[in-house]
Design a protein around this nucleic acid. Structure first.
Lengths: 142, 142
DNA sequence: ATAAGAGTTCAAGTTAACTCGAAGTCAAGA
DNA sequence: TCTTGACTTCGAGTTAACTTGAACTCTTAT
């Protein structure tokens, strides 16, 4: 299947402006252009966009993504480099997950705290629920 | 224990500039000031900073953090609001974790792919490892 | 014939969260 | 006495990733 830039915009939620911006930044190296200059997106291009969104969600900067695409275009001689780029990124993503899971614990604690405070008043939470006090100490005070 | 701004800077890795900036933005509502205007940070303040860092890592904006702090300062009548703020945030964090775990799968696939490509050449990976082809389809093509 | 949707270049604006520097003050310690 | 580290205000600069708009062209469908 082929898609116009407008269709891709609808599918991905990115504006046509943003898509052309990505193209200009050479993040979309495989998008064909017809003789009249009109971009023709393929399913593969949609997948590239998904990969870009994926990498972006891990806070990889556009110039880093570009770097990866450049390597990709240079073929198999850059495999080692690409491997280490991804191993590096894997570690970063793992760190982010750990951080978020840590936050999640804190958020869950807070939610429990607020619920208890709505019952007893915030000053009486620990009196009524000593477990929460322990949890609090674990989370915010080592 | 009490800490000067310089000490807090060393402990947290934030510059004194940033700490004063946070203070100005009222993200540090409990930092005392001595008569001579010098900030005196307590362990509680250090914990507040940890909470800020935690919320920031979930991409909560400073003005949202400020909003939470404002609610906090208004006392128990804002408990419901704070609860829903955190429940909202919990959902967002869960989404982020899901996204990252999805990315992680893709990254792991890529790593396997690169390793295989280094053995067989990128064009021969699927010939030699049909499992990878399946995995590829699962990840990038629904 | 005209509107819709595609294209181009180019420059400027936006937002968040700092970041930096200047310019000047104040107080304590070696 | 002088350095260090704290303070203040103020304003400008930075970076990333868009975002917007202008100004103009080209093609195709109604």
């Amino acid at each position: 299947m082929n898609y116009s830039i407008g269709e891709v915009s609808k599918i991905t939620g990115l504006t046509t402006h943003t898509l052309r911006y990505y193209d200009k930044e050479s993040l979309l190296p495989y998008v064909r252009k017809l003789k009249n200059g009109i971009r023709e997106f393929s399913d593969d291009d949609l997948n590239w966009i998904k990969i870009i969104e994926c990498l972006k969600s891990t806070r990889l900067q556009i110039k880093e993504i570009k770097k990866y695409i450049d390597l990709h275009e240079q073929g198999d001689k850059t495999l080692t480099e690409r491997l280490s780029l991804f191993e590096n990124q894997k570690q970063k993503v793992q760190e982010q997950i750990n951080t978020l899971e840590n936050c999640m614990e804190k958020i869950n604690y807070k939610i429990k705290f607020f619920k208890s405070a709505m019952k007893y008043g915030s000053k009486n939470v620990f009196k009524n629920e000593p477990k929460l006090e322990k949890e609090c100490k674990k989370l915010f005070f080592k």
